[in-house]
Each structure stands twice: as C-alpha cells, then as structure tokens.
Amino acid sequence: MGRALPFSPSILDGMSIPAAFEADSYVLRRKFLKILGASFHVRDGSGNLLAFCAQKAFKLKEDIRVFEDEEKTKPLLTIQARQAIDFSACYDIVDATSGVKVGAARRKGMKSILRDSWEVLDADDHVIDKLEEDSAGMALARRFLSNLIPQTFKLGGGATFKQRFNPFIYSLEVSIHRGAEIDKRLLMGVATLIAAIEGRQDS
C-alpha cells in the first residue's frame, strides 16, 4: 500500500502534457443547475480552467469523460464502469489521448457502508493504493447525523481529497503532496469518480 504510481510521460512522446496533468492542486466543482447527468469544472488555485468533466445521463454503465475545455474539443480521460449493476463497482480509467488504460478504481461496497473506501489499481488490475475517508468517527457521524459534514479522503500514495463545506454545490479540493510520484492522470480519474459517485450521495 502507498506505493508510488509512476507517471509515464513517455506515452505522450511528441505531445505536450495537458496542464490538468501537471497541477499539484486543483478543485472540482459541480456545475449548478445541471438537469441531466452531472458535470464538474476543474480549476487551479488561480481559477484557471484545467479540465471539464461530464457524466453522461441515461447510461446503464457509468460513463464519465474528462475534457481539456468546456466545449469538449479535446478529451483527456475516459472513465467507464465495468458492469451496469455492481455492488463493488470497478471503473477503468483510460488516457483518451493515447488510448492507454492508466489504471482503475474499485469501490469497496461492504466497507463503504460505514466508511467510503476505494482501491486504486494499476493497468494490470493490481492494487497499488487505497483511498478512504480519513476518520471513521466522522464517517459514522456523516451517515447517522448529517451528510452536510464534509468528507476528507486520504490516498496512501500522497494525495488528499477534501470536500469544501457547501450545502448547495459539491466541491472537492485535491492536493498532491510534495514529492509524491503519482500518475496524475490516474489521480484525476479517481478524483473525478469521488466527486461523481460519492458527491451524488450529497445531492
């Protein structure tokens, strides 16, 4: 657990690395008043748009796309659920530029009843990291008292996902720790999943 996830820019030889995969911190913010599906803006600390995530509506299998811009001209990531119905849902994360799967994230169904818990898998489906709510006590309080209590997730490999307190709009702050060698494509995919899947429970 906690093994570093090497970023492989070699796959992007001849192409510039998108700003979204270079940032060390960013915020995913759900778009307000979106009727069908869900979408998120990903912005850096200065408010610059790094990416735009769109979750398709009326899809039996969860399908989330991450684009470089809001016009959806350049896809960055594709996130697809493996099964339409799945208690421990697993989502494959593919770099849309190269078409290569960078890894996957699996929600641990039973464990998540009391405390949201995910496993991060590499491209060969080996578990390389674990992501879970940082405090069991807060997780229980959130379930039994009020889901207005913001969630915080810790990724062993060196990142923190912190939900901002906002009863109306879901917003998730992602911080990659200094020196952490994390595949930022995989990390953005996992952050998008947390915002889309766990964030849905708040709405």
Partner: peptide, 14 residues
Amino acid sequence: AAGSLQNCPECGRA
C-alpha cells in the same frame, strides 16, 4: 477481468 478494459499487449491501447 471480464467486462473490463485492458491494454492490448500488441498495440498497447485499451
């Protein structure tokens, strides 16, 4: 791995 996306060992794409 049934139902998943996997990288092809030949071309490397998912």
